Simulated scan of single mutants.
Amino acid sequence: MEMQLKQGSSSIPFFKTMQKVPAGMMLIPLILGVLINTFAPDALRIGGFTQALFKDGALALIGLLIFATGAQITGSHSGKAAAATTGVVLLCKTLIPAAIAVMLGLIFGLEGFWGVSILALLAIMGNSNGALWLAFAGEYGDERDTGAYVASAFDDGPFLAMIFLGASGLGQIPFLALVAAIVPFALGLIVGAVDREWTRVLDSVPSITIPFMSFAVGTGISLGTVLTGGLQGLFLGVGVVVFTGGLTYLGYRFLLRRGSKSGIGFAAGTTAGNAVAVPMAVAVADPRFLPFVESAAAQTATAVLVTAILAPIVASWVLKRSGGLTVHDPVSSAM
């Protein structure tokens, strides 16, 4: 009976529908949360498990996601990584853009410019969609490229944003708050290194937690903020693909000397779905960022959608022009 239930067809294929939408596992629950917060803001404030999971559960779910991310770095993917490729992706996609965002913060202040806060810039520029990278690199690249998934895993979560904000003086991040952000990641590193079985178990954590986390984040955002922040998020998403993807492309071409395969670098020009939770996590550590959380989360959500659609298109176009749009054959490469 139980086996039949597991293998039976869905009456309404919610899950498959969400998967067909770019970044749908994050965007659809987020939008539902926004709608409930806008039209029935007290519906989930009834206490008990309901409020704990659907209204107040974002931080706990973020912590679980960070723990799982740490376990992936020391798990199966990292064994394939070429250090040079991973370093170039991390440098070009995350570290340089985050450093530029901090420089802009020192010039314009925390509120940023054109309605885009420095918090939004760091969340959007500093997190990359590891799943999209892994899928694209797995099809058109080789083990050096798929192994660079480690870079995407490393920049997931709020602690890099906290480090940049704290080191620059833009954020007053208490030491214990920084430690609290890193502890789940560090424990995940240890668990993944000691027991690879846990790494395999934790592989499914993002697909489980991201929809619930996104819904909880959405319950703190109003529909008006989404509508007003959508245009900025659109431009930021395009900017992520062009700027961070372009930087990674240049790194592939001139540092790694990958020739016709350099276009793979544009696939790094994305924003991770869990980046939508970074503004809230940073504001918990430094309440001065609280006024920017709502707009930053809305802009980040838009950028996630834009980059998920645009980055693989641009990467494929560049690969095609350079003659590198060939599917990787692991069997022939092993021979």
Score class of each variant (00 low, 15 high):
V150D: 05
V150F: 06
V150G: 05
V150H: 12
V150N: 04
V150E: 06
A151T: 08
A151D: 06
A151N: 14
A151V: 12
A151G: 04
A151S: 12
A151Q: 08
A151L: 10
S152Q: 08
S152E: 13
S152V: 06
S152R: 15
A153Y: 15
A153K: 06
A153D: 07
A153I: 10
F154C: 00
F154E: 00
F154H: 04
F154P: 08
F154M: 09
D155M: 12
D155K: 07
D156E: 13
D156M: 13
D156L: 07
G157D: 00
P158A: 05
F159H: 12
A161E: 10
A161R: 09
A161N: 09
M162N: 07
M162S: 05
I163L: 12
F164Y: 14
F164I: 10
F164N: 05
L165T: 09
L165M: 10
L165C: 05
G166L: 11
G166P: 08
S168E: 11
G169H: 13
G169C: 05
G169K: 15
L170Y: 12
L170A: 05
G171A: 11
G171W: 15
G171T: 13
Q172W: 11
Q172S: 06
Q172L: 06
I173P: 06
P174W: 15
P174M: 10
F175H: 10
F175P: 03
L176I: 14
L176S: 13
A177W: 14
A177R: 15
A177V: 10
A177P: 03
A177M: 10
L178C: 03
L178D: 00
L178Q: 05
L178P: 04
V179C: 05
V179I: 14
A180E: 09
A180S: 05
A180Q: 13
A180V: 06
A181L: 03
A181G: 11
I182T: 10
V183E: 04
V183N: 04
P184M: 02
P184L: 01
P184I: 01
F185C: 00
F185Y: 11
F185G: 01
A186K: 02
A186Y: 02
L187D: 05
L187S: 03
L187F: 13
L187G: 07
G188S: 01
G188T: 00
G188C: 01
G188W: 02
L189Y: 02
L189R: 03
I190V: 11
I190Q: 04
V191W: 00
V191N: 01
V191R: 00
V191K: 03
G192M: 00
A193R: 15
A193H: 13
A193L: 09
V194D: 00
V194A: 00
D195E: 08
D195R: 14
D195W: 15
D195C: 06
R196C: 01
R196N: 02
R196L: 02
R196E: 02
R196K: 13
E197G: 08
E197F: 03
